[in-house]
């Protein structure tokens, strides 16, 4: 589209009044075919994805940190990189870290930022409930989380002895996405209860200790027993061990599923509470 083309059209603005076709007001709500939930969710996902992907630094940030961690902490250590099991475990830990980080940042920071944008109340006035926006947000987060693990897996595959079968890889990715659920909920809980300025440090304060205590950076076998006890109660450790179980067959500790479910329920409650509180404040 060129400027010249458009010039030709500007006189339309001066047209006194269009033909009086009855184009306004096609119906009161129900009789018109409303776009379905699926179509609307897809719409919201598409445009949220576009919005996110056009801020390249946000996307790259997700990709770079876990990839760098692979290069600094895993690839140079022959003892780890050269051992198929250890290498796979390291890839699993950093992949999970990528997912946790993406979930917490996308939802925690993203939601908090969205709430401050005046576009958000406008979207609420469109003929759609909160579901499409929510579904779009969750899926968008999942997509960028998956982007985050791509470099980690590639580096593991190219530069270490990490090895899995295709089936194990699929099982691993499925588990990673499942483990992402509680972190997504935690992120939303943060995002709906705090301003963007407050959400950023809070997310960082939550993410790094959880990642460390959960054994995503250092294997928990190196932990003293008291730390190992704490570690097993964290959602990161439960998630890590479950992902490793899917990837290598190394069994997770017995309470892992229970711990993960417990945190999921707790974070879900937090997210719902924060969402309602936010509704009550801004849209009474």
């Amino acid at each position: 589209m060129t400027r010249r083309e458009a010039r030709g059209q500007t006189p339309t603005a001066a047209t006194p009044s269009g033909t009086p076709t009855t184009t306004v007001g096609d119906a009161g709500g129900e009789s018109a075919a409303l776009p379905g939930l699926l179509a609307l969710s897809w719409l919201h996902l598409r445009f949220q994805f576009l919005e996110t992907v056009r801020v390249p630094i946000a996307v790259l940030g997700n990709l770079i940190f876990p990839a760098l961690a692979m290069f600094f902490f895993v690839v140079p250590q022959e003892a780890v990189a050269g051992n198929p099991l250890f290498a796979t475990v390291a890839v699993a830990g950093l992949s999970l870290f990528a997912i946790c980080s993406a979930s917490l940042f996308t939802y925690g920071l993203g939601v908090a930022e969205d709430r401050q944008q005046p576009f958000d109340p406008f979207v609420r006035s469109l003929p759609a409930g909160p579901a499409p926006r929510m579904i779009g947000r969750v899926l968008n987060g999942a997509i960028f989380s998956l982007f985050g693990i791509v470099p980690v897996v590639l580096i593991g595959w190219l530069f270490t002895e990490a090895s899995v079968t295709a089936l194990q890889l699929l099982a691993g990715i499925a588990t990673v996405l499942l483990v992402a659920v509680p972190f997504t909920l935690l992120g939303m809980g943060v995002g709906y209860s705090l301003s963007a300025k407050a959400a950023l440090p809070v997310v960082q304060v939550i993410l790094f200790p959880l990642a460390f205590a959960g054994g995503l950076f250092l294997p928990p076998q190196m932990f003293p027993s008291w730390l190992d006890g704490i570690s097993m109660a964290t959602p990161t450790r439960a998630g890590r061990d479950l992902v490793i179980q899917a990837l290598t067959g190394e069994p997770a500790y017995s309470g892992a599923w229970l711990v993960l479910l417990g945190w999921t329920a707790a974070f879900a409650a937090l997210a719902v509470w924060a969402y309602r509180r936010d509704e009550g404040r801004r849209f009474r």
Binding site: A27, G28, G29, A32, L34, P118, F119, F122
Partner: peptide, 14 residues
């Protein structure tokens, strides 16, 4: 569904 009949302007900054 009632809001199908409604048009609203976003704030320009939004």
């Amino acid at each position: 569904s009632a809001r199908v009949s409604l048009g609203v302007t976003p704030q320009e900054t939004g």
